[in-house]
């Protein structure tokens, strides 16, 4: 009870802080902020990424949207565990193929079956290169196969990589935006490589749109 109250307050405080630093603006370019079940798949350059998406979602959508995050990062200390588990209600997946006991896709599917929407970073890790996107991991494909009714919404986060580059602690106040594109169309019989390439192109094109 107290923890639930606390985690709600901490969540509001984090969102407020994100707004103070980045004045983040949500741009609903290809979809409207309506309560459809969705997977928001986004570019990943900073640990603050899902915070920004979460901040621009209307509260009703926010409550049922869960970020997918690496347990190898979020379960390393008590504060991170509290924020990851309680505040953001993250679906924590183990990114280490060799040692993990849970299958990430099974975990994500079960979250979808509970009615949650997901925030997913298909690049799998933070992009430190000068390329706009790293190659996508196959998880998005498997989710699309398993639950084809869920909307796959490309989501481009602009500028957060300058606010808080990897390894830096103090954020620089710069304006950020989160642009939501049109959901991916379902193409019957499409193989994994073609699907992932199409998803990646959709996100890269959205980046061009956001830069305008």
């Amino acid at each position: 009870m107290f923890r639930a109250f606390l985690s709600q307050r901490v969540g509001t405080a984090i969102a407020l802080f994100a707004r103070l630093v980045t004045a983040v603006r949500g741009v609903w370019h290809g979809v409207d902020p309506v309560p459809h079940q969705r997977i928001y798949f986004a570019n990943h350059t900073s640990n603050g990424d899902f915070v920004l998406i979460w901040t621009v979602l209307p509260p009703a959508l926010r409550a049922r949207t869960r970020p997918v995050a690496g347990s190898d990062y979020w379960l390393t200390n008590k504060l991170k565990t509290f924020i990851g588990r309680e505040v953001f209600n993250a679906v924590l997946i183990d990114r280490n193929r060799d040692t993990r006991t849970n299958d990430p896709v099974t975990q994500m599917v079960s979250a979808l079956d509970d009615g949650a929407s997901l925030i997913l970073f298909p690049e799998g890790t933070r992009n430190m290169t000068d390329e706009p996107l790293l190659p996508f991991k196959p998880g998005l494909f498997h989710l699309a196969q398993a639950r084809s009714k869920v909307e796959l919404v490309p989501t481009w986060i602009e500028n957060l990589n300058s606010v808080m580059p990897k390894g830096k602690v103090i954020p620089v106040p710069l304006l950020c935006s989160v642009t939501f594109g049109a959901p991916l169309e379902v193409v019957a019989g499409e193989d994994k490589a073609a699907f992932l390439a199409r998803a990646q192109v959709a996100l890269a094109e959205l980046a061009q749109e956001a830069a305008r």
Binding site: N159, P165, V172, P173, L174, L175
Partner: peptide, 12 residues
Amino acid sequence: LREFLTLTAKRR
């Protein structure tokens, strides 16, 4: 300044 430096050239 936040608006200005959002648009200026910068690197890590």
